[in-house]
């Protein structure tokens, strides 16, 4: 199973960025305080819908946008058979808690329909799909995985097992409530655009063999390694 990495974008405590415009960031996956992106950080045009998104969706959508922008694939005319696979540990838990706060007063009478819509974590995938014309499969996955490579592996499987031309694969999480926080948390969003075809500029080839991931034939053990390898490739 193989694909080509065409784009890389992120919103993390290191800031917002793209693989080809790192602005000195060598490793965006780091712990720390995550700034939730504003519309102007992501889109030049006024965009009312962005303002309605919950924080989880803003981070995810922004990271997807930067990944597509990095690949030169943000602008589109025809809908495209590109899917999205996003791994998350906490999902939209913060939105769940915010929504629940609207539910408690007056025994549900004030429950927020807008917040409720975003208590399904896959809603931001729909937001990305409609903005960028992505008609592939789209799902949020939850799996215990210290390497954080599950979404990349599932993305490569999706490419191999379906007719989709590309997959946006990555991770999205907000910082959890303090009682759930642990040292391994990496709040933020980071997505790769993986494509079936080699054509155009790419960071390199990514292959999945026997549940192990190889970037240009070198084994990759975790997401940080893969990101570093891509950024090194650009630096070279």
């Amino acid at each position: 199973m193989q694909g080509w990495i065409k784009g890389l974008g992120w919103v993390t405590p290191a800031g917002s960025g793209m693989g080809r415009q790192t602005q000195g960031v060598l490793q965006p996956l780091q712990a720390g305080l995550l700034q939730i992106p504003e519309r102007k950080d992501v889109f030049a045009q006024i965009d009312r819908r962005f303002g309605r998104l919950d924080d989880f969706s803003r981070v995810g959508l922004a990271a997807v946008t930067f990944s597509l922008r990095d690949a030169g694939a943000e602008i589109w005319e025809q809908k495209r058979s590109i899917g999205i696979v996003a791994a998350s540990c906490y999902g939209c838990l913060q939105t769940d808690l915010d929504y629940h706060q609207t539910l408690i007063p007056q025994q549900g009478r004030l429950a927020s329909p807008n917040l409720f819509a975003y208590t399904l974590p896959n809603c931001f995938l729909g937001e990305a799909a409609l903005r960028f014309g992505l008609t592939g499969n789209s799902m949020i996955i939850n799996r215990r995985d210290a390497s954080r490579l599950t979404a990349i592996k599932v993305g490569l499987e999706e490419l191999a097992l379906s007719d989709q031309s590309g997959i946006l694969a990555g991770i999205v999480d907000l910082a959890p409530p303090p009682e759930l926080a642990n040292d391994e948390d990496l709040p933020g969003g980071l997505f790769f655009l993986l494509e079936r075809d080699q054509g155009g500029e790419s960071y390199g080839a990514l292959a999945l063999r026997e549940d192990e991931l190889f970037f240009d034939e070198k084994r990759v053990d975790n997401l940080q390694q893969l990101v570093a390898a891509c950024l090194n490739r650009i630096a070279v």
Binding site: K79, G126, A129, G133, G136, N137
Partner: peptide, 18 residues
Amino acid sequence: GAANDAHHVTAPARDGSG
């Protein structure tokens, strides 16, 4: 098979394209 409407977050595409 699976496909996204690429139309709206909570409403289905009226033409059923997805």
